[in-house]
């Protein structure tokens, strides 16, 4: 069963983002810009503290993409980075279906917000949904969608 236009998928993709994760991303991506791991550099250049790479936010949001499109279902994934993401932030991604095509592909709008409800990333994606998720992870547009929680990224309090 395919989702209808307006169906939503909501997923907590990061709970209490850690500085360790920023460092891990710097190593994995190769992007060692000091804004993302050097607190002194970041504050010297006008920021309150270091902040996440935009590509880390997009990569974390990509976990929601994989959840619904599968590892090889995406045809396109685009994002604008709207606001900085800080250590400690909890991020929730919501996907809303905007088009369903006869060939089985869908388009979605993407919104990732922090724990204050501030949108930090917006984007679009298109592709073919993974078969299992196609029938299980979408909620109708009316009412509160089910929230899938990220299993791993929970910072110790």
């Amino acid at each position: 069963m395919r989702p209808e236009v307006g169906a939503r998928h909501r997923q907590v993709v990061a709970e209490g983002l850690t500085r360790t994760q920023l460092v891990a991303y710097a190593g994995a991506s190769g992007d060692f810009h000091p804004f993302h791991h050097d607190e002194i550099y970041a504050t010297t250049h006008g920021f309150d503290q270091l902040f996440a790479h935009g590509m880390l936010t997009m990569g974390i949001t990509g976990e929601a993409m994989v959840a619904v499109f599968g590892p090889e279902g995406l045809d396109r994934y685009a994002a604008d980075f709207l606001k900085p993401v800080w250590p400690g932030d909890t991020l929730t991604t919501e996907l809303v279906v905007t088009a369903v095509h006869d060939d089985g592909t869908v388009k979605v709008e993407i919104s990732t917000t922090d724990q204050h409800g501030t949108q930090v990333l917006r984007g679009t994606a298109a592709g073919r949904l993974a078969s299992v998720q196609a029938s299980s992870s979408w909620s109708r547009s009316i009412g509160s969608p089910d929230v899938t929680r990220a299993s791993p990224m929970r910072a110790a309090s």
Binding site: A28, G30, D31, L56, G62, M65, V66, S151, M153
Partner: peptide, 28 residues
């Protein structure tokens, strides 16, 4: 390594793994 960095922290070694959606940026 990349999967773990973007939140799949228990990702295991898969010799046939598909690249995650944003992995191409790591070409840098």
């Amino acid at each position: 390594e990349f999967k773990r960095a973007v939140g799949d922290v228990d990702a295991t070694f898969d010799p046939d793994a598909a690249a995650p959606p944003t992995f191409m940026v790591a070409a840098d």
